[in-house]
Nucleic acid binder design. Sequence first.
RNA 1: GCGCGAGUGGCGGAAUUUGGUAGACGCGCAGGAUUCAGGUUCCUGUGUCCGCAAGGACGUGGGGGUUCAAGUCCCCCCUCGCGCACCA
Length: 826
Amino acid sequence: MRPMAEGYDVQAIEARWQQYWREHGTYEVDNDDPRPHWYTLCMYPYPSGAAHMGHVRNYTFGDLIVRYRTMNGYAVLSPMGFDSFGLPAENAAIKTGVHPRTFTDERIEQLRSSIMRIGAVYDWRREVTSHSPAYIRWTQWIFLRFLEQGLAYRAKAPVNWCPGCHTVLANEQVLADGTCERSGDLVEKRDLEQWFFKITDYAQQLLDDIDGLDWPERVKVMQRNWIGRSEGAEFDMAITDADGTPRADGLSITVFTTRPDTSFGMTYAVMAPEHPLATAITTDDRRADVEAFIAHARATSEIDRLSSEGSLEKRGIFTGAYCRNPFTGKPVPLYLADYVLLGYGTGAIMAVPAEDQRDWDFAQVHGLPIVRTIQPPEGWEGEAYTGDGVHINSEWLDGLGKEEAIAKATEWLEASDIGERKVNFRLRDWLVSRQRFWGCPIPVVYCPDDGIVAVPDDQLPVMAPDDVEFTPSGESPLRFHEGFLNTTCPTCGGPAVRETDTMDTFVDSSWYFLRFCDPWNETAPFSADAAASWMPVDQYIGGVEHAILHLMYARFFTKALSDLGVAPVDLREPFARLFTQGMIRLGGDKMSKSKGNLVAPESILDNEGADALRLAHLFVGPPQDDVDWEGVGLEGCARFLQRVWRLGTGEAGVPAVDREPTPPDDAMEKATHRLIARVTDEYERWSYNTAVAAFMEFGNDLYKYVQAEGGPRRDTLAFAVDTLLLVMAPMTPHITAELWSRRHDGAHVHEQAWPQADPAKLTVDTVTLVVQVNGKVRDRLEVPAGIDAAEAERLALASPKVQAHLDGGEPRKVIAKPPKLINIVV
RNA sequence: GCGCGAGUGGCGGAAUUUGGUAGACGCGCAGGAUUCAGGUUCCUGUGUCCGCAAGGACGUGGGGGUUCAAGUCCCCCCUCGCGCACCA
C-alpha cells in the first residue's frame, strides 16, 4: 500500500523512530532516578520466533503504559527478557541435531526484532534470559538457599510420567482427562525420587494475601480454589474384626473429615486403593480379590477412573476388615474405592451416605446402610442432605445445628485424645525435577559417603556440557555424558555423581522480575535495595492462562526470598496490580498455531504499519475481553492516521488565519480541553477502545473546523492538533513523534508533560433539554446550561410537539431534572 | 454439579459509576463529488416496521415486577463462553 497522505511514509518514519529510541536510550532508567518509580512488566515471553498477535496485543498495552506514565512524570522501569528454557528447543534438537542454545538464540533474535518493530520500548540493558550463565548461576544459588532452609527436598513420590515426553510432569501439566498437556499422551503413575519445593509451607499466607491484591476477581478466585483450604478434623480408627475386637496387629487408620458432626451416621469407611496400609489390613479370605482390585486401579488412568460412572460397584471393594467408629464404639466395614484420593487428606475417609452424595451412591450400590443424622427440611425429596438442620440419631449431638455440632464433635475428639482439629489444603508441594537437558541444572552431587551434597556457591553455575548428542529416545543426554556425570564430592573429595535432573522452567519465571531490578549484580541474584526501589511491580500484564501456576509460584518465591533475607523483608507480594488480556480469536475459534488460523502481524507491519496495528488492537474492544480479529477495523484505523497526518502537516482544510476568537474557535478550544479530560480518564480506566473513539470523534470535529468557511484560527488549531498528538502519543508513538518533531523544531513528543485540562474550559453554555411525555422523548430543546426547573417546564409546555401530545389536557405531574431532562406525566 | 463472566443493529462495540436522549466510534452497505478508470480522498445516509412526507409504532436473550422514567434496580427462566470438577 502506498502512502496516501503526502509525505506519510509509514515504513521510513517507523524505522527512524525505533532507531531513535534505541540510540537515545529514551526508555532506559536507572535505579537512583529521582522521579517517582513505576514498574511495568509484561510476562516475559517464551521465544517461539517472530511475534504473533497475542504478543502484539500484550506489548501494545505494556508500551502504552510505559509512555503514558513517563509523560506523567514517572521514572518507568520497563524491562524485557526471554523465558528461554523449555521443551520445544530440545525437541528441535532431537529432530534436527541443532543445539538448543543455537535454536533458542535464533528465535530470541526473531522475537526481539519483531517486538522492536511494533514500536515497543524497553530498557534493553536489563535484558534477562533464563539460559544465560549469569541467570543460571543465581537460579541455582536460590535453589541452594531453599535446600538449606528445607524448602527444597528430595522424596520418592508417585509421579506423573509422560511416556511421550519421557519426563515427569507436575500435576498442573496433566489435563483433566489424564493426558499430557504438551504431547497428549496418557500419563502414567511411577514412583521416583524427585525434587520438590515446599510451597505448602506458604499455603495459608498465599491464601490470606490474595485479599490485598488488585487483581481480576476471577484470577483471585482461581488461586483460592487451587489452594483449596478446608477446615475439619482428623481422627484415628482402630482396625477390628466383624464384632469390633481390635486386631492383633494393632493397626489403625486416620481419616479426615470436614463434617465430624455427622460421625454417628458413619456406616462404612473407605481407603484409597494406593493407601500404604491397603494390603496390610486386608483379611486373607479377601486378599486375592483386593490385590486384583489394587492392581487394576494402579493400571487404570485417571481418564478411565473418571469416566467409569456407570459401574460404581467395580470402583470399590470390601477388604474384609472393619474399623471402630469412635463415636458409637461400633465397627463399620472398611472398603477400598478409587473415589478416595491418596493425595488428599489422609487418603482415607469415614463414609456418611446420608450427608454426602458420593457416599450415598456408593452405599446404594454396595447395599450399605444409610442413617440420617441431620433432619432434612420438610418435603425433602433428595438423597444425601448436606445443608444445615437439627441433628438426630447422634446421642449427645442431638438437637444441635450444624456449626455447633461440628464444634462440639471436634472438642470431644481432642478431649478424648482420638483426633484433632485439622486444616487441609488441596495445594501440593511443587515438583520441580525434570528429566530434560534444556533447563537449569539442579546444583547437587551424590556422594557414596556424604549423600546429597550441594555444589558450593563459588562453583556455580553448574552448566550443562555442549558436546552432547540428542537421541530420539527423548532421554536427557546429561544421563550419558561421562564428563558431566562424574565429579568430585565437595565435602570429601571422593568420586561423586552429578544430579542430571533440571528444574521446571516455572522456576526461572518465578524470580526474573526481581533480577530486572538489578541485572548487573555479580554478588547476589539482586540486592534488597534495588528490589525495594522498584518492587512490587505496579502493573503486571499477561495472559489469563498463567492465572494459577506462574502467578502462584512467583508469589511463593517472593515470600520465600523475603523470609530468607534476599528480598526486602516487607516485600510479600510480587505483583500489586495484574491485568489479564483476553484471547484473540478468528471467526469464533481461538487463534493458535495448532488451529492453523494465525494472522501474522508481519504483513500488516509491512503495509499499514505498527501504529495502525496498535491502534486496531486498542480499538477492537475492551482489553480484558476476548477479541475476534474478523471484527478488527484495521482499515478505519489506518484511514484515521492518514487524517491525523494531514491535520498535523496542515494539508487538510483551508489555511489558518490570525484573528480574535470567534464562537466556533471557542467551541473548538473547549472541545480540546474536553478531549484531554476524557482521554485521561479513559487511560486510567483501561478503556482504550473508547479513548480511540474519542480521538476519532475529535479528529472529525477538527476536520470540519479546518474546512469551515473563513478557515481555522491559527492558535486554536495549533493547540487542538498538538493536544491530539500528545494524547495519542502513548498509543501511536511513531506518527505522533514524527509530527511533533516537525511542528516543534525536532522536539520529542514522548518527553512532553501530559496535558492538563483547564476546568474552566470544561463547562458548556447550552445543553440539549430532553422533553418527555409519559417517559417518551417528544422534543429536544437547546437551553442555557443554568436553566432552572420553572423555566424548563415553561419551555417544555410551550413546545408544539408537547402540546400535540397533551391534547388540550393539563399535565398531572412534571418531573424536571434541569438542564438535561423534563418528563411531563399526563 | 459448583464458581465467574457475558447476551445491545448486517458486524466489532458505546452508554452499565449517578436509573434520565439506546446504538457513540469504526467496519460493512447505499448514494453523491473528485478521477479516463480502479484505488484514494471528501460529503450524505444507514436499528426494525408503517408512511411520499410529516410523523407514528416497536426495539438492548425471554417472562414478570419496582418507578414519572429501566439496557441499567429486583425476582424467575434460557443461551453462550471461561475456570474448577470424585478435595471427604
